[in-house]
């Protein structure tokens, strides 16, 4: 059963007298454990689609189902509840809380979800170790490099064991080495935890890792490559010459 189902999603932004159609009848499904990229040029509607899937925004028309539940008409607190429990976010600018250290940033979603102190500590330390930041737990964001900050953000997105992590241009502010490292970490965690990852990106480095790519053009799905089984995707990474799908 899909974890996210989108039916005929429309979204138009109005700035003054000007109307911009961001999404124009998008219908898509996302399965558990996916590692997919929504790609397209600037203004194609990728970020808007991600925000609607993540219950940060509402469509003007259409239905969004999350884990078989229609979330389109939920109120602000009900959507917050979903974000706190089943959706993880990774943002382009890392979006860490500057006054909290790495440990506290990662711990925050667990606090919001009401996880007990002992379990909170275990899971926070486990995630920081998984992203290779065990030795930086008490560093604040301004004491970390861009790559380290994005790894904290990855840990924060995954610590609550969400159904899906939505990542908006996660490598846009990272150099090549850090971008690759971040993608490798996310790929590894996807395989280990089974959490689905959906990226909005125009970075070829991300597309290279994705097992499925959805091309958006002018708010419409132009191409939708079929998902690749995890094993095949791993094989294709090991043998880049093989066709992926």
């Amino acid at each position: 059963m899909p974890i996210i189902e989108l039916f005929d999603i429309h979204k138009t932004y109005r700035i003054g007298e000007v109307e911009t159609r961001a999404l124009d009848g998008v219908s898509l499904n996302f399965e558990p454990g996916e590692f997919s990229a929504i790609v397209g040029p600037s203004g194609s509607g990728k970020t808007t689609l991600l925000q609607i899937m993540g219950c940060l925004d509402r469509p003007d028309r259409g239905i969004v189902k999350l884990d078989d539940r229609d979330v389109t008409r939920l109120n602000a607190d009900q959507r917050a509840e979903l974000r706190r429990n089943v959706i993880g976010f990774i943002f382009q600018f890392f979006a860490l809380i500057p006054v909290l250290d790495a440990y506290e940033n990662v711990e925050l979603p667990l606090l919001l979800a009401g996880v007990g102190a002992r379990e909170r500590r275990e899971r926070t330390l486990e995630m920081l170790e998984a992203v290779g930041l065990s030795d930086r737990i008490h560093h604040r964001p301004n004491q970390l490099s861009g790559g380290q900050q994005q790894r904290v953000a990855i840990a924060r997105a995954l610590v609550k064991r969400p159904l899906v992590v939505l990542a908006d241009e996660p490598t846009a502010n990272l150099d090549t080495a850090n971008g690759e490292q971040a993608m490798e970490i996310m790929q590894r965690l996807n395989e280990q935890t089974g959490t689905a990852f959906i990226f909005a990106t125009h970075d070829p480095r991300v597309m290279k890792f994705a097992r499925r790519t959805i091309h958006l053009v002018d708010g419409r799905v132009a191409e939708n490559h079929a998902p690749v089984p995890v094993e095949a995707a791993v094989r294709s990474l090991s043998h880049p010459g093989e066709p992926r799908a």
Partner: peptide
């Protein structure tokens, strides 16, 4: 404002 947006994105409710 952006930081409050992050907290909201992580699931912090309006009352919180």
């Amino acid at each position: 404002v952006r930081e409050i947006g992050i907290l909201a994105a992580l699931g912090m409710k309006r009352l919180e």
